[in-house]
Design a protein around this nucleic acid. Structure first.
Lengths: 247, 247
DNA sequence: TAGTGGTCTAGACCACGGT
DNA sequence: CCGTGGTCTAGACCACTAG
C-alpha cells in the first residue's frame, strides 16, 4: 500500500470549493511538511496520482508543475519528481520607488534638486557603471520629501550613452527613477542595504543630527546588457523603514 | 483587422523548438514591451487567441495564466485580461538565516547564549505575539559570531503554546531559527528593517562603539494561524549588509 | 523497452460580470 | 443573455532516461 493509496479513501477529492489541482498540491505539501517525504524523496509520478487520486493527468501535471515553479519539488524528465532540498528561512523584502510609496500613503511627494550636472567619473563611479575613469557621466542629487519632511537623498550617476537627455529633464515633475524607467526599461537590479552614519552635508540636506543612523541603499540597474545608473539612497532611520511580508 | 490577425501569417506558430504556450507568451510580451499594448490595454481573450493563433484553449489559457502569475498581465473573471500597470522599480531583497549565510561563506558560525528563561510578556511583546499582557513567554538572547567576531544579536520571544520545549533545546548546536522551523513550519513572515543606534548593553555584546549605526530587523513568523515567535535582530553596520539581485 | 515528464488538443461544465 | 476566465477530462504524441 503506497502513501497515496492510504489517503485515497478521500473520495471527496476535489469535490469541495478547492480546485482539484490545488487539492493535489496541498496533499503533496502536507506530506512534505509533516516530514513523511523528506528532501530528495521521490514523489509519486503523474500516472500514480492519476490512478490513486482519481484526477486526470493534466490536473496532476499542473499540480506538480506549479509545485516545481514554487521551488517545493524538483522535476527531471525521464527520471521523476523529488522533494526539493530544504530552503531555510529565506524571505523576501520589497524595495520600492520612494515617490510611489509616498503617493500610495496618500501623502504629498516633493523633491528639491540639489545638484544636476555633467562630471568626469571618479574611479569608484566608473567601476560601478562599467566605464573608464574620467569618462563623462551625469550626476544628480535630489532630496525627496514626504509632506514637506526630507526623507531621502537620491545621489545618482547616469550613463550618458544610454540616457543622453538626462540633464534636460524637469525633475520637479518626473522623478529620475520614473524617467530612467521610461527611457531604458530595467532588466536587472542589484541592491545593497546598510546602516551608516550620515556625512555632514547629508545631515544638512535631511535636517538631522550627526549621530542619527541612516539606511543606505546602493542600487545599480541595467537595461539589457548596459549598466544604466548607480544610485546611493540615504534615509533617516527615524523616518523610514523597509517592510515586507512573505507567505 | 486585429493586432492578432496581423501576425497570424506566422503559420509556423509553435512548429519550432519553442512550446506553443511559450510562443504565445512571447508574442504577447513583445506587444507589451513595444508599447503597442500599453498598461491597462485589453488583451485578446482566450478564444481570440484560439481563433487567431491556432492553438487550443488550454494552451492559450496556460500562456495567459503564466503571464498573470509573472505579474505581466491582470486577469478578471467575467471581464477580461489586461496589461498590468507599470510596477516601477520594485525589487526584492532576500533576508536569510544568519547561520546558513555564514556557513555558505565558508566561515565558522558560533553562538553564545546570553539569556534563556521564561518571563511574563510586556505589553509590547504580548501585542506582537497576540497574547495577553503578563502571559507566559520564552525569552532568549543569543549572540551569533562569524569567525569569532560578533555579528548579530538575536533577541527572541517564543509563544510557549506552540513550542513548549523551547527552553530545553541546546542552542549551541542548533539555532533557535532552525529549531523553530522544525518544530513549527513557517507559513508567514513579516519583516521590518531599520537603521538604529545600539543600546548600551547591545554595544557590549557586539563589542562596538556607542555611535556605530546598526541594522535592526524585526521579524515575526507564523505557523498556520498561530503567531510563533517575534525576534529583534541587530547587526553592526560595519560588519553586515543585505544584498539582493533581481532580474 | 518501459517509465518518466513535456506538451497539446477538443470538448465540456462552471462562476462571474456586464448587457 | 453572452462573453469572460477557471477548471477538468481522456487521449495523444514526443523526448528523455534507465535498465
Amino acid at each position: 500500500m503506497t502513501a497515496l493509496e492510504r489517503k485515497s479513501d478521500l473520495s471527496t477529492f476535489g469535490t469541495g470549493p478547492v480546485p482539484r489541482y490545488e487539492a493535489v498540491k496541498q496533499f503533496i505539501r502536507s506530506r512534505i511538511e509533516s516530514g513523511e517525504w523528506p528532501p530528495n524523496h521521490r514523489i509519486p509520478s503523474e500516472n500514480d496520482i492519476v490512478a490513486d487520486l482519481g484526477v486526470s493527468r493534466m490536473t496532476a501535471n499542473r499540480a506538480l508543475r506549479e509545485l516545481a515553479s514554487e521551488g517545493t519539488i524538483t522535476r527531471v524528465q525521464g527520471v521523476g519528481s523529488f522533494v526539493a532540498t530544504h530552503k531555510g528561512s529565506t524571505a523576501l523584502l520589497e524595495v520600492r520607488n520612494i515617490a510611489d510609496e509616498i503617493r500610495e500613503r496618500g501623502h504629498t511627494h516633493t523633491s528639491k534638486i540639489s545638484l544636476l550636472q555633467q562630471e568626469q567619473a571618479s574611479p569608484e563611479v566608473a567601476d560601478a557603471l562599467g566605464l573608464a575613469t574620467g569618462a563623462r557621466v551625469f550626476h544628480s542629487i535630489i532630496v525627496h520629501a514626504e509632506n514637506g519632511v526630507p526623507i531621502q537623498i537620491e545621489d545618482r550617476f547616469v550613463n550618458p550613452a544610454i540616457c543622453p537627455n538626462y540633464l534636460e529633464q524637469d525633475f520637479g515633475s518626473i522623478t529620475p527613477n520614473a524617467y530612467l524607467t521610461l527611457a531604458a526599461p530595467i532588466t536587472r537590479t542589484e541592491q545593497i542595504v546598510e546602516a551608516v552614519l550620515p556625512k555632514p552635508w547629508e545631515c544638512k540636506l535631511l535636517a538631522i543630527g550627526r549621530y542619527e543612523p541612516c539606511l543606505m541603499i546602493r542600487r545599480r540597474t541595467w537595461s539589457e546588457a548596459a549598466n544604466v545608473t548607480v544610485a546611493r539612497l540615504v534615509y533617516p532611520g527615524t523616518r523610514y523603514r523597509l517592510e515586507g511580508v512573505s507567505q
